[in-house]
């Protein structure tokens, strides 16, 4: 589904991403973990096209996508959420999700201005699909509430519904559990598994280890921009280098 080959990113003299390669298999949940500043979000932004790669290849569904603008990548079937939720101010939860149908609908400016029958039929379908997604995420009761006035967990759900509305094949989730309590986190875990079961491949960045270990099929560990491990959750937990990165040097640990 997604394949990174020797991806580098420099910010001036800072080597933020250092030759990272991995692949995400279709229908799997892959997690990207690492200490703060390891380059996880940068890598996410490279994949989504927000930042240009310095060198290396990123292929999505067998197609090279580095250099594509974010909206083109989104149109290819990759959708994302943001660590600091980005919902549109002044729009209801429903309208925010309807936004996600943008690339799955076609009415242009002229058709919209004239409000042709085709346009309002399409509009009705968009509304219908958006409502279904709100129901799926259990937030249908907030459909007509201004999205940015919702509780944090609900805002996350709206953002996820918006991402799903684009009918992605690959969903990038940037810290979906940050700021959530343990119950909400458990809810998110169930949701992500459900999304995978719908046939959508998931790549997530996450700090919450219990969530990552529970749901991931495979984990990539980054440290200082470089990949130090890639394996199944059980193996990652036993990997000495990962333990060293997270818990400090072995000398200190044994001392």
């Amino acid at each position: 589904m997604l394949e990174l080959y020797s991806v580098h990113k420099y910010f001036g003299g800072l080597h933020a991403v250092d030759g990272v390669s991995f692949r995400v298999a279709p229908g799997s949940i892959k997690a990207l973990i690492g200490p703060n500043g390891a380059g996880k979000t940068t890598l996410f932004n490279l994949i989504a096209g927000v930042l240009p790669v310095s060198s290396g290849n990123i292929t999505f569904k067998g197609r090279q996508i580095q250099g594509f603008k974010p909206h083109r990548i989104a149109a290819l079937g990759m959708s994302r959420t943001f660590q600091n939720i980005k919902l549109c101010h002044g729009m209801t939860a429903l309208e925010n999700v309807m936004l996600g149908r943008h690339i799955r609908s076609s009415a242009g400016l002229l058709a919209a201005m004239l409000n042709l029958p085709r346009t309002w039929r399409e509009e009705r379908d968009i509304r219908h699909r958006a409502m279904e997604l709100l129901e799926l995420l259990g937030i249908a009761e907030f459909a007509e509430v201004e999205a940015t006035s919702l509780a944090f967990g609900q805002q996350r759900a709206v953002e996820m519904a918006r991402a799903l509305a684009t009918e992605p094949e690959l969903l990038l989730l940037d810290e979906p559990a940050s700021g959530l309590n343990i119950y909400e986190t458990a809810e998110v875990a169930r949701l992500i598994t459900r999304i995978r079961d719908m046939g959508i491949t998931v790549l997530l960045v996450e700090h919450d280890m219990s969530l990552v270990m529970d749901i991931s099929d495979e984990i990539v560990v980054l440290s200082f921009g470089a990949k130090i491990a890639e394996d199944r959750p059980e193996a990652i937990q036993k990997n000495p280098e990962v333990i060293r990165t997270y818990l400090g040097e072995t000398e200190e640990a044994s001392a």
Binding site: V50, H71, A75, S79, F82, L87, H102
Partner: peptide, 18 residues
């Protein structure tokens, strides 16, 4: 809606394919 999304957050608007 797309226009209002651009007003709100251009990055988010791009990310959903606008």
């Amino acid at each position: 809606r797309a226009l209002r999304a651009i007003h709100g957050s251009e990055e988010a608007a791009e990310a959903i394919g606008i």
